[in-house]
Design a protein around this nucleic acid. Sequence first.
DNA 1: AAAAATTTTTAAGCTTACTTAAAAATAGTT
DNA 2: AACTATTTTTAAGTAAGCTTAAAAATTTTT
Lengths: 219, 219
Amino acid sequence: MSVAIENFVKAIYKNGKRDHNDTKPGNIAKELGISNAAATDMAKKLATKNLLHYEKYQELKLTNKGTKMALNVVRKHRLWEALLFKLFDMSLHDIHREAELLEHQTSDLLANKISEYLGNPKFDPHGDPIPNASGEITTIDTSIPLSNTEEGKTYTISRLMSDDKEFFDFCAQNGLKYGNSVLISKQFSKNKMTQILINNNTILLNEDFTSIIYVNEQN
Amino acid sequence: MSVAIENFVKAIYKNGKRDHNDTKPGNIAKELGISNAAATDMAKKLATKNLLHYEKYQELKLTNKGTKMALNVVRKHRLWEALLFKLFDMSLHDIHREAELLEHQTSDLLANKISEYLGNPKFDPHGDPIPNASGEITTIDTSIPLSNTEEGKTYTISRLMSDDKEFFDFCAQNGLKYGNSVLISKQFSKNKMTQILINNNTILLNEDFTSIIYVNEQN
DNA sequence: AAAAATTTTTAAGCTTACTTAAAAATAGTT
DNA sequence: AACTATTTTTAAGTAAGCTTAAAAATTTTT
């Protein structure tokens, strides 16, 4: 299976996981930076390969086979992120970009070796869960976006759901890192801003950020 | 530049380094597993990109630009081999296969990070020299094939110049490994066999093997 | 040096993964 | 409900990197 196909099923998988699950060709096209026409073509083709269900004008739905393929690519991506993060001093954004390419050129054998070397980690450096070799995500995700947190409580950062360089640069500068603690100083419901205390610094985040930073409540 | 192009210049580079330097399209085609026609087409195309000099029916010759590209790919290949060898328990053959794919999906930045992490090694696990970031091979290779050694002398294995699984399996079983010592017990000039003593075992090698195992004399 | 064998080149054609442009269907707005 | 805007689909076309088959040139053999 080609890189284009792997990326296609991966895009459907990711878009399907989101709030407003939109997996119509146009959204997948946007995700991949290709034309809508190309996405429709590919969707039809992958339907014949039993990777997804295609019905005109409807959302694209991965079959079990398609989901398995997507999870296998996601597994390799996240294992590479974890390995590069451990070995090298590189920004999360750079690590993501390298993993985006390496994920398609990695045998199952190598993926298993990386996993073993890292002690079979359950999460990558963004806090995203790493599927196991069978394509299952065994961890239960109880985390919530920062936008849904309560004033005065303290949380642990569990996921940074983004690929964006500026976002990661901002995170790196402000200690917004997987595992770190944040205290919610104030929730401004009107303009959907959130004020947090982290590393003894007070910072103010807008919804763009509070919707992609996930946390778990500390007990 | 595409994977096909990178592999093409790499194949010319490798074939150009051999004894009977044959870089005509047919040999490159054989190396890459494509048709002669495809190799001729590609050669013409790469000439327009200033990667090689093409003259009908003549050997293909890399330009400086082409050589630089080839060495950059070779560098990434060998750095991956060195890294995988260090981190994981995998056969040299498997390591080679993974590196063959990863080499094309590796930024210069990542290559430099790998090199740095490994302490800027000069050789990969086969003993092949690793070009530096400028595409230069600074080491001087004084090694000779086992077939040219003298009876009674002891040598250090410096290179295993092969990609073949069976060869590596044989090497692994018999302690034929980069850095190990071999004593030449006997050279049979008639049938070009060589008897060596390694790890207290006497083994007999034919020319297929003695021509690709390189060694340095121990003083 | 001529004949035979091999290699290289040319030509035509294929598949993959795209593109743009226009037609058809759906979704949003008044 | 009708009109408008957007999205999806269809259709035609392109570039990369191959293929096979046949013609042209080179190399090897006798």
